[in-house]
Design a protein around this nucleic acid. Structure first.
Lengths: 197, 197, 197, 197
DNA sequence: TATGAATGAGTTTTCATTCAT
DNA sequence: GATGAATGAAAACTCATTCAT
């Protein structure tokens, strides 16, 4: 595996586990199995590493989502497919996901907040346009698409929390992913149908 | 104002703005208008300051919520009232709210994560029992109350994000709180009625 | 008890227990049962407290010795009497004794070394003149009195060590003072008679 | 010279001159001719430096002694040889010797006291067994070997004091080592023959 | 006289980054 | 390229001392 990726991998794990500040360049190098100063052959600074970790995560997340957009079925099904992709991304790339999920992140490099907000906007606009489509097609009520998008985002986030949280409690009983997944789909369903009787 | 509170206030602002690590004790002292070592007359460590900031925030948040629980009206209205309280809390104590909102926070003191997760659980169980009530009263469908609670949490969080985000961009145009508030109620409404037509 | 003495007492205990640096003015004040700044009404600095503690100890030690000098008996008996006084001083004022015993002390205020060296010189000259007397009287061999005095000093010190050492191990089983005392007199005897058969 | 040793050397000098607390890491680094943080590449803390200084000193002292034990001569001569080794050690490694001599040391790291007491015990048991031998061989009277050992320890210590003391008064006239040495052997002789006529 | 509150000067320690090999 | 060694800059924390009451 190319060194650059080794580093990025190690970094993602450590940033997710301990945060930007507590993770040291030395540790990252150690986990990547290389010398400390070698890191600086590939990245100009610790900040830079974080930046690239984030970028890579961002893109791989968006890619995972995009695959689900063009499907010849109801918008509702597309949104569910996106939810599924989201859930899978989190299961498979938990470390990166933890970093991406930390939207309020301000403990780290200042521009990180910026990137994370950009991700948020991209996701919102993606959801928003899907909702608009759905409204046009008569699938959905006449709601404000942006609001709907924000809500959907919140729902996805909240329902996946359990997976991301426990991921660092290596000791504790592993999360019952099955149960979480079941609740996940139930929760998404609530988004569509509401809770009123 | 008592020194202890001055410090806590300054700390809340700085922790919210720059996170636990980037905020220095010197800065906190400076903003509180006192000498660095005076801080240590009131708190035994930077960690301790954060802990107390968090605790105080936690309690004042839960207090703000509890006022809304016992009302002679529909459960739906109670949930909306809670939403309102949440929104007001965020408007009024934006700094603390930013800290409380950072559920994925792991960049800071390790027990902080614990406290924040506890807050989450308390909120979920509060919402959960309200939903159960509503179901019993026939107000809501037969949904899983915990899932519903998680979703409601996510919705509240996502809808308030704009306020919390910009709060640090002191430069940028202030958020259009009115607009956010409008979306906020619209979003909560979606939680009840769903988006399907 | 006058405050000044309260402070000096507390100081002696703490200086003996933890040394000059580790003992804080706050602790001293606390143990003396007064406020921290009150200490400065009686002493101009921490150094000053130590200085006075030392002086007081020095004098009370020399006083204890002097009482034994004028006795109508053999010089040998005078030296034994001094040994006894030394041993008693250590039993009764262990804390001060610990401080006085630390001749190599350089961890503390610089002039402290000076005072302790003076004590040493005073003791040596006391012993030295006794030995000279003894030689003149034909009690002792023709030895170098100064050397003899140094040796006697060393013997006293070494034999009392066990008491001073354990005095800080509050937890441990108290030293068997009886046994130490027995060895003490045996040891002094060796000084007079040597070990050769 | 390897950096680790440079540091240890500088540290020994400074600890001996000013004690553990008054010697700063910065000074140690300065005297070692390196940057402050470089020290931490070799030792994990100031405490650690002291610990290693002490350990090294302890071992080199015991080594110096051990060389003198196995000699085909009278026990008395062995003890004198040990005295000589002791004296030479002090002349050659005065700084370390100062630290080792400070048996009452409690101003420093707590475990330091422990190590120094261990040294004392090792020396006592060494002397004690030599004395026992001497008694068995009929060289010495029937004395308590432990007491004898303690006395011998005290004698050695007291007689070397002048060298250790002045060693820090760099300004003052150097000690007349010759004179001290002469007294040293005279003093040891007293241990064997006593002072009685 | 007595003291709680405030603090500045100083110390240890950490860590991203550089540089010589 | 790769790296071990070196370090400066910064941060948390301590404590003797002062000062207003």
């Amino acid at each position: 595996m190319p060194k650059r990726e080794q580093i990025l991998d190690a970094a993602a794990t450590l940033f997710a586990e301990k945060g930007f500040y507590a993770a040291t360049v030395e540790e990252i190098a150690g986990r990547a199995g290389i010398g400390k100063s070698t890191v600086y052959e590939y990245f100009s600074s610790k900040d830079h590493i974080f930046q690239e970790t984030l970028k890579e995560g961002l893109e791989s997340y968006m890619d995972a989502m995009k695959g689900r957009l063009k499907q010849p079925c109801s918008v509702r099904d597309v949104l569910i497919a996106i939810g599924t992709a989201h859930f899978n991304f989190i299961k498979e790339r938990t470390h990166i996901a933890r970093i991406l999920a930390d939207e309020y992140n301000n403990s780290q490099s200042p521009w990180a907040t910026e990137l994370l907000l950009q991700l948020r906007e991209r996701r919102i606009s993606m959801f928003s346009s899907l909702l608009s489509q759905g409204i046009e097609l008569g699938e959905f009520r006449m709601i404000d698409p942006r609001t709907g998008a924000e809500v959907f985002l919140g729902v996805l986030g909240a329902l996946c929390m359990p997976v991301l949280c426990r991921s660092q409690n290596n000791e504790g009983a592993a999360v019952d992913t099955e149960a979480v997944e079941e609740r996940f789909y139930h929760g998404i369903d609530l988004f569509f149908t509401g809770i009123l009787s």
